[in-house]
């Protein structure tokens, strides 16, 4: 930032200051969400704010301050890289969280995965039962076996 800026410089500095402060507030919002939300899924919702929108705002501030056209593609590559990696890691964390039951089912309005999981479990139980013809089928779909 230029000290004692006037005219266009002052306007660009003001826009940069707003972008930087809003980008920092995104991080604060994520921290507040991490502290106050009840379970893993809702915390994941809060945690993505600084990773995508906050980074976008701060990178835009860098682009405004550098004032060279070649900076923008570099910043765009950095942001797109973040856009590619964040959904994958969020998917893995959410998948592990669902499997280890780190969620409050009463807080969900729709659980579309539950029917799929139940059907897959039933299919696996049937396959195991067919694989061992001498064993009687359990009533509630539990796998028959010595242990």
């Amino acid at each position: 930032m230029t000290p004692n800026a006037t005219g266009v410089d002052a306007a660009i500095d003001a826009v940069t200051a707003v972008l930087l402060i809003v980008g920092a507030i995104m991080s604060l919002g994520a921290a507040i969400g991490l502290l106050r939300f009840p379970d893993l899924m809702s915390r994941m919702h809060a945690a993505t704010k600084p990773q995508v929108l906050g980074l976008f705002l701060v990178l835009a501030a860098i682009g405004l301050q550098m004032r060279e056209w070649w900076v923008w593609p570099v910043l765009a590559v950095a942001w797109i890289f973040q856009l590619l990696t964040v959904p994958v890691s969020a998917h893995m964390v959410g998948r592990a969280g669902y499997r280890t039951r780190h969620l409050h089912p009463e807080l969900l309005s729709v659980d579309e995965l539950e029917a799929v999981v139940l059907r897959a479990a039933g299919q696996r139980a049937e396959e195991k039962a067919e694989g061992e013809p001498g064993m009687p089928r359990m009533r509630d779909g539990a796998t028959p076996g010595p242990d």
């Binding site: 980008g23 915390r43 600084p50 980074l55 890691s89 969280g97 780190h102």
Partner: peptide, 22 residues
């Protein structure tokens, strides 16, 4: 849980990135 810690570590990393960018 461990996943809460992973998520918070991710947020901490994003905060460090924001500090570098600022």
């Amino acid at each position: 849980s461990l996943l809460d810690r992973v998520l918070a570590a991710d947020v901490l990393l994003a905060i460090l990135g924001a500090a570098l960018a600022i």
